[in-house]
Each structure stands twice: as structure tokens, then as C-alpha cells.
Amino acid sequence: MKSRAFVPEKLDVAALAHDDASLSGEWPAASLQRLADSAAPEAPASGWPALQWSLHGETRQPKGGKAQIWLHLTASGQVALTCQRCLKPVHEDIDIDRWIRFVDTEAEAAALDVDSDDDVLALPRHLDARELIEDELLLALPLVPRHEACPEPLAHVDDLPVAEADERPNPFAKLAALKRGGSA
């Protein structure tokens, strides 16, 4: 039997699992547009190291049930995001190790996903694994990226320049004068 060639952008997950096959590679970070859009302006994705990924399909046969299709996804890389404290680039390592179970319908996936710790998806005819990996990388990004200790000291409130008082009179001062019976 000749082995099949699998392409990540048009992956037959059922065949990958049936063959107990694996697929791996690396992509330039800049080729994943949505991930590249999260880059700090001073550290664009074109300067990031390549992202490593691997997929392994597996068929599991539970006792008394029908065969289950599983996909083991791993990915890792380093991204540069904007630190929310000092607004300088902060390098974050991202590592993903996830099992995904595939079922026949969206309704079945929704029902099982509620009760399961694993991700459950409806089995597509062809899966764009590149898009799935990018989705998982985006979900793994920190919500608030920041350095453990910022490279430059942060400005204290006391060090910030004080704004000059407005030349306009305070409208509430006029109102208070009117209430006291005086003129404005």
C-alpha cells in the first residue's frame, strides 16, 4: 500500500487518523497574517523565529462504541508583543499541546464540547490545518503582555508634568455665586 501525501492547507483528518500518520513543519511567523498583526510595531513578525508545528492523527476504539477520530496538535514559537506597562516589545514563548476529537456533526460537537475537557469539532471534508494552528496560537497569546521587570524604569505620577490650569472660569463657580445671590 502506498503512503498518502498530506497537505496541511487541505488536510483529510479522517485519512490521517486512519493511517496513524503524522505531519510536521515550520512556517515563517509573518506568513500567519492574523498572528503577525499582533506584533509590537518595533518588532514585526518578519523578525520572529519560524513557528514549529506537528499534527498526529489517531483512531481510538472505545469499548462498546464507534471509532473516534483524534488529532494531536503541537506548536511552538516566539512572538514579540507590546508590553502593557512600558509599551516596549516583550518576547513571549508560546507552546501548544492539544488533543482535538472530531465527530460527525456540528450538533454532536456542541453537545460533547460542553461536557468534555478536550476540544470537539465537527469533522470537515478537508481541514485547513494552517488556520487551525494559527487559531490555537492566537488563543495562547497572553491577554496582557508585559515584562517581568521592564527594561526601563517607569515614570511615576509625581514625575509627570502638571498641566496648566485652564484660562476659562469654572462654570460651577458661577453657579455657586448665583445660588448665594451674588452676580456672576
Rank of each mutant, 00 (worst) to 15 (best):
L160S: 01
A129M: 01
P62W: 07
Q84K: 08
A30D: 09
L123T: 09
A107P: 09
K88D: 13
L16R: 05
L139H: 11
H91C: 13
Q33H: 11
I96D: 02
V157L: 12
T82W: 02
P161V: 14
H18L: 15
E58L: 12
P151G: 04
L143C: 10
E9M: 08
S24E: 14
E26L: 06
Q61N: 08
G65K: 15
G47A: 11
A43M: 12
S31Q: 06
L178K: 14
A129T: 02
K174E: 11
A111K: 15
A75K: 02
H72K: 09
C86M: 08
A184G: 14
D95N: 14
S54C: 09
T74Y: 08
L123N: 05
T105F: 03
L81Q: 03
E131W: 04
D118I: 12
R130M: 10
A173G: 12
M1R: 11
M1G: 12
E26W: 06
R60M: 14
I69L: 08
A129Q: 05
Q52H: 07
W70M: 09
L139T: 09
N170M: 04
R146N: 05
D115E: 14
P145S: 02
E106T: 09
L35C: 04
L11T: 00
T82F: 03
L141G: 08
V120W: 01
H72Q: 12
S24I: 06
P49K: 06
Q33K: 10
V79F: 00
D97K: 09
A17W: 00
R180Q: 13
A111N: 15
R85H: 02
A176N: 09
Q52L: 10
P124K: 06
D113L: 06
R34Q: 05
C86W: 01
W27C: 01
L143A: 11
D93Q: 13
A40G: 07
E9L: 01
A5T: 11
S54K: 01
A163T: 09
L23E: 02
P44K: 05
A149H: 14
A29P: 04
G25L: 06
E9H: 05
A45C: 07
L73P: 01
C86T: 12
P28D: 14
S38N: 13
S183E: 09
G181P: 05
F172W: 08
